[in-house]
Design a protein around this nucleic acid. Sequence first.
DNA 1: CATAGTACTGAATCTCTCA
DNA 2: CTGAGAGATTCAGTACTAT
Lengths: 359, 359
Amino acid sequence: MGLPVDAILQGDCLEELRKLPDRSVDLVFADPPYNLQLGGDLLRPDNSKVDAVDDHWDQFESFQAYDAFTRDWMKECRRVLKDDGALWVIGSYHNIFRVGSVLQDLGFWILNDIIWRKSNPMPNFKGTRFTNAHETLIWAAKSRGGRRYTFNYDAMKMANDELQMRSDWTIPLCTGDERLKDDAGTKAHPTQKPEALLARLILASTKPGDIILDPFFGTGTTGAVARRMGRKFIGIEREAEYAKIAKARIAKVIPATADEMIVTGSKKSEPRVPFGSLVEAGLVRPGDVLYCPQGRNAARVRADGSLVVGELAGSIHKVGAMVQSAPACNGWTYWHFKTDKGLAPIDVLRAKVRAQLPG
Amino acid sequence: MGLPVDAILQGDCLEELRKLPDRSVDLVFADPPYNLQLGGDLLRPDNSKVDAVDDHWDQFESFQAYDAFTRDWMKECRRVLKDDGALWVIGSYHNIFRVGSVLQDLGFWILNDIIWRKSNPMPNFKGTRFTNAHETLIWAAKSRGGRRYTFNYDAMKMANDELQMRSDWTIPLCTGDERLKDDAGTKAHPTQKPEALLARLILASTKPGDIILDPFFGTGTTGAVARRMGRKFIGIEREAEYAKIAKARIAKVIPATADEMIVTGSKKSEPRVPFGSLVEAGLVRPGDVLYCPQGRNAARVRADGSLVVGELAGSIHKVGAMVQSAPACNGWTYWHFKTDKGLAPIDVLRAKVRAQLPG
DNA sequence: CATAGTACTGAATCTCTCA
DNA sequence: CTGAGAGATTCAGTACTAT
């Protein structure tokens, strides 16, 4: 079966999820309903309806029902996820502890919990509690120790003025022009999420062209941001009205070109260059001497790219570690060669070689 | 049976709890084991080893075992709590979802989840995830619609410069003189909490003279702060060594008189706004062009907030410095965007975002 | 004595590839 | 599957030493 990409599937979340093939999407973003007292929305595992909640026992019953509902959609999402895929869920204290527990029980492996710190939350009018100024997102890999999830660490660091991005994100509520209104001018959806929130998590955890599944699509924030950022989406939404609004909204979005979506890449993704190839290329010659940053230790280069210091011999990394008595060492930044202007790290020479590589 | 007030009960948490009478304490603060599941050693970039929390008391066989443990101690705490009492629990993503679910299942009614936002967290050394920069506290009443819990709304508002106290609290880690050391100068307890955290929640949710129970007393932060703030405490701690340290610590505390109960206001400085967040917010778009003051140099914006000029790429500051061949550059004042009235510095956009931020 | 520089540390689920 | 080797990776703050 083909995958319905860049499409909104109007229908029941579970039914539509079941139609999707195994291991077919890269990311799931879910903003599930969390009204635990919503009798009409929640069914017990035996499909009986949950009544209004007022005493302790009923409350427990409704948690059970919510857990079952959560387990159902989340299990399907897990099936549909690729092995190197990941899940994001957002919620508040009403539901996030249920959601987090179920997610762990299903085998997802939590990577971070992220705090959406609202810069302009609604105050607590009655003065009975603290201003509820945040929501919680959970970011989880499909399984522990499975295939590696996507995390664009360097792009995130860049987006945060060259400091590691933290687990608390300060982002305003969705208001103003961004907030969708119906014809009467009232908000089209009660819990529309800000595009900035989706933009950050999509930039962090997907690559251009990735497929993002949103089983509670609402008015399509996920789809709009995915398209704007050169990603693909699949949205599931039960309410025809929301689906219609989402479709119109997304149609207006101009997709980014691949060129616009290039971000700061990691060093890990750069092609490997063995030190020996610098010797082969003549950038370093057998017999040359390399120095540690302060110039105290000196090593001699051999024709095969190994270094020699006294009795010690081995790779640039191994010898670097040995002369420092350190458990490990990055030889590329540790060893230096002499230039007119002083010592320069051999990493400079590696960069020269990389610049000439194809692709 | 008399209540052992201002005392440390050395023994197993459950056994000691069972000795306490029903409905006898006003508040429970619990800092249970987090059930971290660490891999091997973790080295920093400078090759020093991270001192991990690998103590035996943090080891559990499974989530099920952890849930059962949680249910046991929490059930007893609920019994011991007065009907107008409340519970605070602290945890991280490793355990807080389990804890929150169990708490709801037992009939506790969540009032807020509070984020302890660490101003100086440990970084993620390997660049694999977001910096884990917060912990979560749950504040819950004994039951829904039961007798009214204590919340000192005005004291909290006063402590927050006349603004409603929010659900995210920025507080530094416990370091320096406050951190208890053993004779060898190493930390006495691996997870000592800052007194400022306890001070805020005690001020918010107890009255002078109230009794605070801490079933995982450790080195007695709860007791020390309770005493300092004119509250009473009961601490339970299994390890004799911790109990001993706690006892000595608390003995040194001078209880405050009522008029000394002043809360230190939070230091405010201008919040940092990364350039990347302007891109997320849509104030600048990937592909947009920025100009130097005279309009000669032009740079293209990428989705992660980095700039590109020819072969050069990096932050607004770095690229600004490079195009000028200067050692440093303030990108906020150097780079400009086009408006109807000519060029304007991007600092203008930053001011817009800052105007919306919380302190 | 003041200032600059070095060392150390904090509840952390912390690499990837190829043989 | 495991093991070995290449090589990538940190922020805020305190305490102490050197100049």
